[in-house]
Write a protein that binds this DNA or RNA. Sequence first.
DNA 1: ACAAAAGTGTTGCACGTACACCCATGT
DNA 2: ACATGGGTGTACGTGCAACACTTTTGT
Lengths: 229, 229
Amino acid sequence: METGLPKFDSAFSIDCVIFGFEAGELKVLLIERNEDPFKDWWALPGNLVENDESIETAATRILYELTGLRDMHMEQFHTFGEIHRHPLGRVITVAYYALIRIIGQKEVKPVTQYAKKAFWHAINDLPKLAFDHSLIFDTSIQKLRRRLSYQPIAFELLPEKFTLTQLQLLYEAILSKKLDKRNFRKKMLSYGFLKELDEKQKGVSYRAAKLYKFDRRKYNKIFQNDLEG
Amino acid sequence: METGLPKFDSAFSIDCVIFGFEAGELKVLLIERNEDPFKDWWALPGNLVENDESIETAATRILYELTGLRDMHMEQFHTFGEIHRHPLGRVITVAYYALIRIIGQKEVKPVTQYAKKAFWHAINDLPKLAFDHSLIFDTSIQKLRRRLSYQPIAFELLPEKFTLTQLQLLYEAILSKKLDKRNFRKKMLSYGFLKELDEKQKGVSYRAAKLYKFDRRKYNKIFQNDLEG
DNA sequence: ACAAAAGTGTTGCACGTACACCCATGT
DNA sequence: ACATGGGTGTACGTGCAACACTTTTGT
């Protein structure tokens, strides 16, 4: 392809912050790198963008290569372009976050060589990550918190059927603060997009809780004006 | 510079949505292009990123080249990476917005060749712009509106001393809806970061309004917890 | 005197917040 | 029976929305 444009001597990548929720904890998917630089370090999954794919497509592809999942809610949140953020040369990276259901997906295996393995790590005691990935992660969690306050993104992290307590624990994990049980329930139910099921939790040694599911149709009906920003 | 990284066959640019406020209208700075593609079309000011500058630096430089202004509030808001967004080849662009005081700056002259001229255009009847710049602009205005609701960015667009009516007109222009005068004043004053001056408007043929200024010190004191997201 | 915009309060409603006890179930 | 989390209501304060008239000033 002859472009007529000046060549830009750099590479261009996508990094993904993939959130999951398990055992009452918010987790993020990390890989162990198999290549220099930062060989053996932990890092966010990411990869270079190909010439024949848009950045959205690249983000989707990279997520797929690492998790086998498609059609996730992915959201671009920031582009990092410091000159020396990559020790080998200029690499500008667009960061995305995604929310996925860990349930039934606990074994996450990279299909690419650049990672030895992929694994979930609780967000509360993350080690230092390769490159500027700690900064990228910190930025992502701030965006996630802000978005949680005006978009029903939490449901992407839960199993399809969930209890209100599970939902509350998830909110608490994301916001890292305790919420009041009665107020939380009142508010969630008042939105009108939770569908109460004729079903209860199973296998617990105490009173079983009702299960709910998120009703996207109702949500869209209620908030049809509330466009993306 | 030998990077050891695969070469990415593309260019990388910054586009700026520069907002100003004049005569009760919100305006955006456009250029008339002097080069193909889209020669003679109107476009957002933008330019390629150099290899030895970060994207923040590039954004600041490009704004300077077009307006002579420095130290503006610039905010990255989205990266556009569709394959065919540039007809001559792959160009990924990071979009920023900036807010500036038009007052005393009405003559904006590009110092680069790629634009014939730069000029302010009211946002309400924008023509079709080059590339995907109409999309970039639409995205920027949505981000601007959202940000206005939790950050005091409006003051960047006004002269240092302003009346409450001017402030209200600006909010109305950004949100494109009418606001109630009494409620607006009550709310603004209740924040406590507006400093009332011992000075009044001059040169008007009606009752002169009090002048105020934005007190950033007070703002920081009041909202020290409200960190950037 | 008139035109034009400045300036000013109250009320009702919706929403967030604080707060404690009984209930159902499994062991 | 007991341990464990499930489930529920009220009262208060804050903030937002609706609403119209008098005051000041320049011409």
